[in-house]
Amino acid sequence: MPNSQGKHRLETTRRRVLKAGTIISLSGAMLPTTGLAQQAGPQPSPENGVTVPVSFRVNGRPAALDIDARASLLDLLRERLGLVGAKKGCDHGQCGACTVHMNGRRIASCLTMAAKAHGRDVTTIEGIAGADGLHPMQQAFIDHDALQCGYCTPGQIMAAIACVKEGHATTPEQIKEYMSGNICRCGAYVGIVAAIEQAAPQIERS
């Protein structure tokens, strides 16, 4: 993957220090509506610290906002864009519940600084079902009851889709190894492996 983002020069702008509690509006923010269909979107919160403009695509739609440069991609998705499918389970890259795809590859969004999304494509659990229904991996998770409480499930499914696309779903042993970055405390691992085996032939390798 050649350095596709090399041309972007992304810099933070130091804001005037805000008085505690003062609400300012986001400049030029475009909030995608994907995933918000059933709920009122959160109001843009004022950003503190030093902000950085981030412009990227999420689930195929453009989004642009100035964001506290300390923020993670996970907190950008959840707290700024209302895309709450990706979950916070550890905030340190140790559980996989926050897994999303960036430029088609699975990453831990809790350990990815929001600013790193600039100029890139992000896909979340809200963006994988087709207009005609569930993604084959989502259906396979239902068929094999590859979930219980459902909290780790969005991360499991995003990791599972990537696992297949990477070519790491050729044997049960390989699936187990390449899905070990996603902890399921309910213990649905047997179902998860079976679901991936079912869905794999329906998903193209990248």
Binding site: G41, E79, V84, A86, K88, F141, I142
Partner: peptide, 27 residues
Amino acid sequence: RPRIDAHEKVLGRALYAADQPFPGLLH
């Protein structure tokens, strides 16, 4: 038969406590 709430869960639409949106939410 399928888990009755599996559909919501695989879509990422099941709203857990920290997922609830509120205007003017403080952290």
